[in-house]
């Protein structure tokens, strides 16, 4: 799904105001960046067709609101980005701090934690004689 610059701005607007009609959206963006009512109308229509806005009729005008909340939308985008990374090869394009792969279980992680703690103990024991020597000095 591709989003234009104005579409993103309008979506951000709906994550803040919850519900608005075309004229309210136009009034907001006219002050912010100019543009015509028609541009806003077609942007709202595109976002509705993309399933990002919901609408219902009140009198003669449509009332719009966001179909998904900000967190859910970003979560969906993140999922799409990760899909690009995982489809060809699990370790492919993403340089993530840790991968999303599920190849480890809790027991194996516990085992690794134990290993790190042992290392820490070993380092403390190694440093202890030199610290004692410094204290004596």
């Amino acid at each position: 799904m591709n989003l234009g610059e104005l579409e993103k701005l309008v979506l951000n607007y709906f994550w803040r105001v919850e519900i608005a009609d075309t004229k309210q959206v136009y009034a907001y963006f006219e002050k912010q960046r100019g543009g015509s009512l028609n541009t806003i109308q077609s942007t709202l229509d595109r976002l509705f067709k993309k399933g990002l806005l919901k609408r219902h009729k009140e009198g003669h005008a449509f009332q719009y609101r966001a179909a998904t909340q900000r967190k859910a939308f970003i979560g969906q985008l993140l999922k799409e980005v990760t899909e690009d990374f995982t489809l060809a090869d699990e370790d492919s394009l993403l340089t993530a701090f840790v991968s999303l792969s599920t190849g480890l279980n809790q027991r194996q992680l516990d085992k690794m934690e134990k290993m790190i703690q042992d290392y820490r103990q070993k380092m403390i024991a190694k440093d202890a004689p030199s610290n004692a020597l410094e204290d004596k000095k």
Binding site: L3, E5, K8, N12, F73, I74, L77, L78, V81, D84
Partner: peptide, 8 residues
Amino acid sequence: RVKQLHAL
């Protein structure tokens, strides 16, 4: 997709 994510 990354560009979209970046915008948010």
